[in-house]
């Protein structure tokens, strides 16, 4: 969890040292630390890609929305 906290807030010196030591001597944890950053990057990239290339609103839905706006206005 210190890995996640580190991305959001400054850790206390002792926590920083502990995390550094842990990652230095635990290759799988080090690997996980890199993967956790990748997951976050991919999630952002995936959402951005879908926001520009996804399906569009149907004409029927647009018309329904237009009618509601006219009725409410």
């Amino acid at each position: 969890m210190l890995l996640e906290q580190q991305a959001d807030q400054a850790l206390a010196r002792e926590q920083r040292v502990n995390l550094w030591l842990h990652l230095r001597y635990c290759p799988y944890c080090n690997r996980y630390a890199q993967q956790t950053v990748l997951i976050a990057e991919w999630a952002r990239a995936s959402a951005s890609a879908r926001a520009t290339a996804g399906p569009v609103l149907s004409e029927a839905a647009k018309e329904r929305m237009r009618e509601r706006l006219v009725a409410a206005g």
Partner: peptide, 14 residues
């Protein structure tokens, strides 16, 4: 407002 769905609907929906 009545023009919003046609002008911005697709982008907002995506």
């Amino acid at each position: 407002p009545a023009t919003w769905p046609a002008r911005f609907g697709d982008e907002l929906y995506r």
